[in-house]
């Protein structure tokens, strides 16, 4: 119950923060540029305030099968995703994709190295060839 309560309060405060920042950001803009985002900031402030009060007065029940916000299984995959984005800029799409597919497959298929290596090379080359030469889609990186 306590964790759930903290999560709901955290979410309300997060949106309250966004509303306040938005309100401050549009200060000094001309009327036509500011009217819409300012109205939205006020509405968001009110709605987040209601959510905060609601989560304090009547905290929601924990749902059946509910997992933590960031499970130990998801965090390494998030890191792999972020590294993939960084590597695309440095190494180009093809090499970064082969590395991502390799590490991603290895992580998801219970560390089966052979499956990961073969799968990643095949997937990477297949995607590269298909999009580059058949669909003529440009690629990020080098």
């Amino acid at each position: 119950m306590r964790r759930r309560l903290n999560r709901e309060i955290g979410v309300s405060l997060f949106f309250l923060g966004i509303a306040v920042i938005a309100f401050i950001q549009v200060e000094g803009l001309n009327r036509m540029s500011a009217v819409f985002p300012r109205t939205l900031a006020v509405i968001l402030l009110v709605l987040s305030g209601i959510l905060l009060v609601q989560s304090l007065v009547r905290p929601p029940e924990k749902k059946k099968g509910e997992t933590p916000l960031a499970s130990s299984r998801i965090l390494p995959f998030l890191l792999i995703l972020v590294l993939y984005a960084v590597l695309i800029a440095g190494l180009g799409f093809l090499i970064a994709t082969i590395l991502f597919a390799g590490v991603g497959t290895w992580y998801l298929c219970d560390r089966n190295k052979i499956r990961a290596i073969i799968g990643s090379i095949l997937l990477g080359i297949l995607f590269y060839a298909l999009f580059r030469f058949v669909f003529l889609v440009p690629f990020p990186g080098i």
Partner: peptide
């Protein structure tokens, strides 16, 4: 899932980049 998920991520990267040829869009998408 180990075949499906990397494929989906690759498609999302290609898709988000191809719109404006912008690396920033890939980062935004992720």
């Amino acid at each position: 899932a180990d075949v499906l998920l990397p494929m989906i991520v690759m498609l999302t990267v290609i898709g988000s980049f191809a719109i404006r040829n912008s690396y920033l869009d890939v980062c935004m998408m992720l």
